[in-house]
């Protein structure tokens, strides 16, 4: 269970304060597939960053299984992310000098998993996202869709309970985007909690909930088609 209590985030831009999030209250049940939508500047990426522990709130709390993330220092947050969260970015953020396989092994390396153990696990993950034949290549030699699959496999490396994806289909064509979304659906079906940030509004049939942000506030929170079909918890 993820609980966001009166969550606020303010940025200082020069002498001006910009309120990216204001008093957000949200609970996300374990195993649910939640889409966060909104216009550009609505605060959805900020929300994803806070949930993934990439950034810290200015006010309010983020409780993960009842534990406040504020209690963790930067290194504690990094360890927590490595074990519990998989993060997927719009621009893939793969390391260009590492092969596809090494990119996927990287989170395991930092978690203390040996090369001997990490390698078959990474290959299995690549197989899961359908690009095991690309394992020896460098990311820049792959298509955008393939790179995002690598990023998804990397996010799953330490088998995290939560996946946070920030506009994962933003750089992909429609067909590839659909394939990537199918992967998320499959992971949701396997019990992963997924927070998907997107500007696309026609995802409601695929997810359990659609949370709409506007000017840093929750404008609406509606049940999605997947929940209505009994796919998961809302």
């Amino acid at each position: 269970m993820i609980e966001l209590k009166n969550l606020g985030k303010t940025y200082q831009v020069g002498t001006v304060e910009f309120h990216a999030l204001r008093g957000v209250e949200l609970s996300i049940a374990k195993g649910s597939f939640v889409a966060v939508v909104g216009k550009s500047g609505s605060g959805k990426s900020t929300l994803a960053n806070l949930v993934a522990g990439i950034d810290r709130p200015t006010s309010g709390k983020i409780l993960m299984e009842g534990a406040d993330l504020a209690g963790l220092d930067e290194d504690g947050l990094a360890r927590w992310r490595g074990q519990k969260v998989g993060v997927i970015f719009q621009s893939f953020q793969l390391l260009p000098t590492l092969t596809v396989l090494e990119n996927v092994m990287l989170p395991m390396d930092f978690a203390g998993v040996s090369v001997a153990e990490a390698k078959p696990r990474a290959m299995a993950l690549l197989a899961k996202v359908g690009i095991e034949d690309q394992a020896a290549k460098l990311p820049l030699s792959l298509s955008g869709g393939q790179q995002q699959r690598v990023a998804i496999a990397r996010a799953l490396a330490n088998d995290p309970a939560l996946l946070v994806a920030d506009e994962p289909t933003g750089n992909l064509d429609t067909r590839t985007a659909d394939e990537v979304l199918d992967l998320f659906t499959a992971f949701a079906d396997q019990g992963k909690t997924i927070l998907l940030v997107t500007h696309e509004r026609d995802l409601s049939s695929r997810v359990d909930r659609v949370v709409t942000l506007c000017d840093g506030r929750v404008e609406s929170d509606v049940v999605g088609g997947r929940a209505r079909l009994g796919g998961s918890h809302a």
Binding site: R81, G82, V87, Q93, L106, P107, F110
Partner: peptide, 16 residues
């Protein structure tokens, strides 16, 4: 800088 951020995103501590 950005690559270091990626390392931290996937779980690297500042000491690592």
């Amino acid at each position: 800088t950005r690559e270091l951020a990626i390392l931290k995103t996937v779980g690297a501590s500042s000491w690592q």
